[in-house]
Design a protein around this nucleic acid. Structure first.
Lengths: 217, 217
DNA sequence: ATGCAAGAGTAATAGACATTACCGTCATCT
DNA sequence: AGATGACGGTAATGTCTATTACTCTTGCAT
């Protein structure tokens, strides 16, 4: 280990007193917003390793200390912000699902809300991209926003139970299939410069998806 | 301004005499193999920024100079290796397509060869992951292995011409759909630790895909 | 032999950035 | 007022890595 000051290492007084991550909920909500906005703006522009926290701090008009105090690390900061956004998508989805009876329509809605959300919030998509590779290859926990993913799982399970979904493959595979399609569609939509609105094509696209995942006749 | 890119700084001062990238084909094929093997081994384990070229050089039993002489940069090294692999997949695909008449079978083959390839070459998939995020957000050129992607395009075009493919959406969207599904399936296959062989499920999965992309009856 | 070119090995150069430490300033509470 | 604590600003600290330079060895063609 790189010894900082030689006298520190062997004294009895170690116990680093891990910088006491303050409860994030203590953070002034207005400040929190500014921070998450800066995270969104900056991390969505540059890749993770090219972003410096100083820049983020400046962008949010807070000091570096504040960030470290409430978030603890660069990664945590990114994931926290991401989680907030996924939560918003999740809430919106739950909200929109209310009052829909027909199962296929429910699924269509899940699909639609997702496309619509990313189309409205381009930067969030870039943020997702920034973290996906940091994430997928390590822990997944951070990516499991219960509201959002829970809803996906629930709707999927309901279809399974009703027997309207394809049951030749495992449920996980079905989910992979769906995410794969959606993720790529959204990703390429941005890659091509946001032309040809996705939501406008949502129904055609959804019918394609539905033919794939519904139980074949 | 704090712009990072170190290589762009020189205003008018010097004509760096850019280190004369030697023709890569001059490189001893056996050495080249060792290098690309090391790239595969190492880049597939750690993320791009965590890989040091010294390590790669050691792993390949070559000196750093050799790498810089023939490849020029870390990124170029990675992409070169990746391109080799995509080329292999492409060749194999072309080879396997020979003698198939039925269009749907052709497409099925394209699908199968891809899954099979990544299942056989796990590290290549990780390599792809390592570069996707470096890539997609910038230039795409590197990712356009003509043999591989050309084949995809050709097969897709053929189906369009025959009128068997869904023509409610743009051809690009169709391609996105297909790649999205395949990419995610493969990605998650690894993420879950390579259980439940993909190729064994290839036909069920392909039928799902086919229902989506073929012209609806 | 002699010279040469290729490549190994090692160190030098240059930045970038996460994370910590310190210091000064206010607002709020007692 | 005095104390407390949160926070801004700036400057350490400690690492890491690309990329370049330089020196030495060695196989090999003249």
């Amino acid at each position: 280990m790189g010894l900082g000051t030689a006298s520190e290492e062997n004294g009895a007084a170690q116990e680093r007193e891990a910088p006491a991550l303050a409860d994030r909920s203590q953070l002034d909500p207005e400040t929190r917003l500014r921070i998450e906005q800066a995270v969104l703006d900056i991390f969505s522009e540059r890749e993770f390793h090219r972003v410096g926290l100083i820049e983020v701090a400046r962008g949010a008009n807070v000091s570096l200390q504040t960030i470290y105090k409430y978030y603890g690390s660069k990664e945590a900061l990114l994931f926290s912000s991401l989680d907030t956004w996924m939560g918003k998508l999740g809430s919106r989805m739950i909200d929109h699902l209310q009052g829909i009876e027909d199962y296929k329509e429910k699924f269509r809605k899940v699909f639609w809300v997702s496309l619509d959300f990313f189309e409205r919030n381009p930067k969030v998509m870039q943020l997702v991209m920034s973290s996906v590779y940091l994430n997928t290859w390590r822990k997944q926990e951070t990516f499991q926003n219960p509201e959002l993913f829970g809803t996906f799982i629930r709707v999927l399970g309901e279809g399974r139970a009703k027997g309207v979904l394809n049951d030749q493959v495992d449920e996980k595979i079905l989910l992979d299939y769906i995410f794969g399609v959606m993720f790529r569609l959204v990703q390429m939509y941005f890659h091509r410069g946001q032309r040809e609105s996705l939501t406008k094509q949502a129904n055609v696209l959804f019918e394609m998806l539905w033919r794939a995942i519904s139980k074949p006749v």
